[in-house]
């Protein structure tokens, strides 16, 4: 008996290309959804700069506002909004897949699980907008 006969053959795993997600629409939307987190992080940085400008006084805040009027940043913010809304919709809809609620042995339809998420989204947006615009 040879020394290696007890070992199982190592399975051949083909390493996918770095661009595997371009091959199919569902793979691409998966990557786009995951990429939404970059736009999230970008706007957190904008918010941190906004807080810093607020703390540094009226001139610093006016300079911050002037920076945000840059057309390139407006385009970037519009793209960020689309991506973050895409994240929100996929995240809220995933709740019904992740949470299976049964009432009287029957599964509660997805609609009743996702609807409260959308109501919370609308309510939170209205409260934030009201506080900021009323200020």
């Amino acid at each position: 008996m040879s020394a290696g006969s007890g070992r199982l053959p190592r399975p051949y795993l083909r390493r996918p290309s770095a661009w595997w997600w371009l091959g199919r629409w569902t793979y691409l939307t998966f990557m786009l959804r995951d990429f939404s987190c970059v736009f999230m992080a970008y706007f957190v940085v904008v918010t941190l700069l906004q807080i810093r400008a607020l703390g540094n006084g009226p001139e610093a805040y006016a300079a911050f506002e002037a920076h945000l009027r840059n057309p390139l940043l407006i385009v970037l913010n519009a793209i960020s909004l689309l991506f973050v809304v895409y994240h929100a919709v996929t995240f809220f809809n995933a709740a019904s897949t992740a949470t299976v609620v049964r009432v009287g042995g029957k599964r509660v339809p997805d609609f009743y699980i996702t609807l409260p998420n959308y109501i919370a989204w609308a309510a939170a947006s209205v409260v934030v907008a009201w506080l900021v615009l009323r200020a």
Binding site: V46, S80, W121
Partner: peptide, 30 residues
């Protein structure tokens, strides 16, 4: 992020810089 970032981007990233809505003053935000 899902509940709160969209309204922040909409207000501070688009509506105020574009002048679609009057932005609150420095003192009011502070």
């Amino acid at each position: 992020a899902a509940l709160l970032l969209p309204i922040h981007i909409l207000l501070f990233g688009l509506a105020f810089p574009l002048g679609l809505l009057g932005s609150p003053s420095y003192q009011e935000l502070l």
